[in-house]
Design a protein around this nucleic acid. Structure first.
Lengths: 127, 127
DNA sequence: CTGCATCCGATGCGATACTG
DNA sequence: CAGTATCGCATCGGATGCAG
């Protein structure tokens, strides 16, 4: 995280950011992180995930899984049975994401009260 | 991060998540994290930030700052000069966010190549 | 300089219906 | 069971114009 002394961004910091952005987009979307966490406890099939997430639409679960798969975070293996069974699991890369995410989650849980208080104060003052 | 053995979410894990979600939303939006990082190197005024971010519209910069301020991550101090000067700075809470974020950023930079390779492979196979 | 108001296109997510 | 197709709505972010 290099910044120039004057607070401007250095040229290649900007380039790094574009890559980092993509990760933050994943982290920021509604279900990806939760999905990674759940898969962290073991591989699961499509409808197991659907039930575990409780509230996700099946269309979004599909596209979220596709996104994670495309990024190499989740693997998808089809077993040619009837009816078909599809197992989703974290890849090694996906597993390695578990730690940074949990650092952030820990921060969030540890400061949730602070944030809520700040919001309440802000909203009170705002009127 | 508690999961039941069967891979279901425990009841209050779900509750924690809603709080965590709000943080992840911040992290996920296009400019908040970058803004926090930049302010990490010292307080700055509105148009300094505008230039440092280079590409952000002023409408979005305003609303992003408001969001961060509301969450207690950033402080806003107006100096009654003419023309007005407004200084933005990280609060203590905002500063404490710097570390979890940099853990994630480090991961992102360290695995950017992996992700890009995975995407390329996926897209090649997809057709 | 530091905003707010307005418009507008792009994207995200949910609901529903249908399929191999 | 594990999807695809279609829709509609809400939110986000950019552009522009105006104001204290």
């Amino acid at each position: 995280m290099r910044l120039l002394g004057n607070g401007q961004l250095s040229p290649d910091f900007d380039a790094e950011c574009r890559g980092t952005r993509e990760i933050l987009n994943r982290v920021g979307d509604k279900w990806s992180v939760l999905l990674v966490v759940i898969l962290g406890s073991g591989s699961q099939r499509f409808n197991e995930l659907r039930r575990a997430l409780d509230g996700i639409s099946q269309r979004v679960l599909t596209s979220t899984l596709r996104g994670l798969e495309r990024d190499g975070l989740v693997s998808r293996t089809v077993r040619p049975t009837n009816p078909p069974q599809v197992e989703y699991a974290l890849t090694q890369l996906g597993t390695s994401l578990l730690e940074p995410v949990s650092v952030l989650a820990t921060w969030a849980q540890g400061h949730r009260a602070d944030v809520q208080r700040a919001r309440a104060a802000y909203d009170r003052a705002a009127r």
